[in-house]
Structures are given as C-alpha cells and as structure tokens.
C-alpha cells in the first residue's frame, strides 16, 4: 500500500500538475501533530544464519499511533475549523511520511532534517521538536502518538510538553472540544477509564483505540507534492548550536546492542501427533506439574 502510494506521489512530483489551494485556513484551532517515520517492525526478520537484523527491504511507515493522532487532529479541524501542521524529525526520506500526512489532509508539514540532529535520545528529540514548535509559534493543541513501534518508549510526547511547559494528557482514547477552550479527554488506564478536562494549550498523546485513521486521499496528492507545503528546517533554522543537539547532547548512550538469548535449552519431542502428545503428557506428569 505504502509503496504504491509513494510511486503515485513520485509520478506526480515529476509531473507539472498543480492545483490551486482551495482550502480555506481559519485560525480557530491550530493543531500540531508529531509524526515519526518508522520501519515496519512487523516486517523485520532475523537472519537465521548470521543471527542479525535484516533491515533491507523493510518498508518505512508512519508510526501507527501517530496516524491516530493525525486522524484525531483532522477530525477536530473538520468539526471546528483551523489548521493541522504535521511535524517530523528525521533523515531526508522522512519527507515521504509527511507527504502521506498531507495526503491524509494536513495543511502544512515541517521536517526537521540535519545531520546535527542525528543520534538524539528521547530528551534531545523532544527538545529539538519543542524548539520547532516554538518557531511555529501559533498552536492551541499538540497531538502525539503515545509511542513509536521501533522504540516503544512513550517518552517524547510528555517531554515535549515539559519543554513547552504545557499540561499533558496521555493515553487518550477520546477527545471532545468544549466551548471556552478546553478539551475533555477520555483516558484508557490499566483497569479503568478516566475523563479529564484540560485547558488549552495542551499536549495530548493518543493510543490506537481513539479512532480508525482515514486512507490518504488521492485528491490531496497534488498538495503533498507542493514544495510550499513542506518546510525543511535545519539546526540553523532553529538557531541551535551542535552542542545542544543530537547524540552529543543526549544524556543516554547505547553501550551495546546484542541479539536476545536464543540458546537452545530444551528437547524436541519426535513422533507423530499421537506419540508427541503422549510423550509430553508423560513428561509433565513425571515433573508433577499436571
């Protein structure tokens, strides 16, 4: 799906086709959605011979819960008017994710891309994104996916809120805008649902249960190819020195990466189905566990 979509975008980008932007931007609710481009971890496999990660050919996708955040933003905009800006940080190819966000209906996209940003841990990633949000300046609401499938940390959203000194609501499964600039958020906790009211501006992280994201709309493909709709900002645009960025500024460092323990410790039970079942039951009885 993603590849077909990308081919279409590429074709259109090469063509001279451009439509006038007819979308009226009303400044009632300005929403920023953070988007991370991630490898589709469901597709990652371990090479059985070398026991190493096979990344080649693994498709990149918009992190699933970021897609939920974008859907929530688009739904709010449709109900109340306003703008949706998709914000991402990553290598130049992360532009693909933002093009897809524009196709889904985002009005604008900003990509933070600079070698200086590379290797940032969650704290410094959140710091860099928060500086971009300060530069965007006009926002009422920041929506983030709860966590990304490649790291599962769920830290960047709250840390952005920390840098911007915003109230946060995590684990959102429902959003409702109230008159007077506050939001009722339904949170999904371990064994309960909680409803909270938060005054905007605020940052909300959403889970996959909040909605079913729409598919990219082909009518928006022209938008997604419009360079004016995707801004690329570097460290210089954010006026940040290298010392505050990337790996060097990050408090955490990866000491080592290793394959999980896959040592064979058990025994294989041979035979046909009946024999296997019989042997297993005998063994479990001998061990007094059944």
């Amino acid at each position: 799906m993603s590849t077909i979509f990308q081919d279409l975008v590429d074709t259109l980008r090469k063509s001279t086709l451009h439509f006038a932007d007819t979308k009226k931007l009303m400044n009632t609710l300005n929403i920023i959605v953070t988007i991370k481009q991630v490898p589709d971890t469901a597709e990652v496999r371990i090479d059985p011979k070398t026991n190493s990660l096979m990344r080649e050919g693994v498709p990149s996708i918009i992190n699933p819960e970021d897609r939920n955040a974008l859907e929530a933003a688009l739904a709010l905009r449709e109900a109340h008017d306003g703008t949706v800006t998709a914000l991402s940080m990553g290598p130049p190819q992360a532009r693909d994710a933002l093009e897809e966000a524009l196709c889904m209906g985002a009005d604008l996209a900003v990509l933070l891309s600079d070698r200086a940003f590379a290797g940032a841990d969650t704290l410094i990633t959140a710091f860099t994104l928060s500086r971009a949000i300060m530069k965007i300046a006009k926002y009422d609401l920041i929506l983030c996916g709860r966590q990304a499938i490649d790291g599962d940390t769920a830290q960047v959203g709250p840390q952005i809120a920390g840098f911007l000194d915003l109230p946060q609501v995590t684990y959102a499964e429902g959003l409702e805008l109230k008159k007077g600039g506050s939001l009722i958020v339904q949170r999904g906790l371990e064994d309960s649902n909680q409803w909270v009211q938060v005054k905007l501006p605020a940052l909300i992280t959403v889970t996959g249960r909040i909605n079913h994201p729409r598919y990219p709309n082909l009518y928006n493909v022209a938008d997604s190819c419009d360079d004016a709709k995707i801004k690329i900002w570097t460290a210089k645009d954010l006026q940040l020195p290298q010392a505050m960025l990337g790996l060097g500024a990050s408090p955490t460092t990866v000491k080592k990466i290793f394959e999980p323990d896959r040592k064979m410790k058990g025994e294989m039970i041979p035979g046909d189905e009946r024999q296997m079942a019989e042997a297993l039951i005998t063994k479990l009885k001998e061990m007094h566990v059944i």
Binding site: L123, T153, Y171, L189
Partner: peptide
C-alpha cells in the same frame, strides 16, 4: 500508565536520561 506519564516529565525537569521498559 502513571509511571510512563510521570517519568518523562521528571527526566525532562532534571535534564537527565530515562530508559523505558
């Protein structure tokens, strides 16, 4: 859900590292 809401805010305030899960 509580710890993952609180911990990143604390690490942010303290400007220190936090490793999840």
């Amino acid at each position: 859900t509580t710890g993952r809401d609180l911990a990143p805010r604390l690490a942010n305030r303290l400007r220190t590292g936090l490793t999840a899960d």
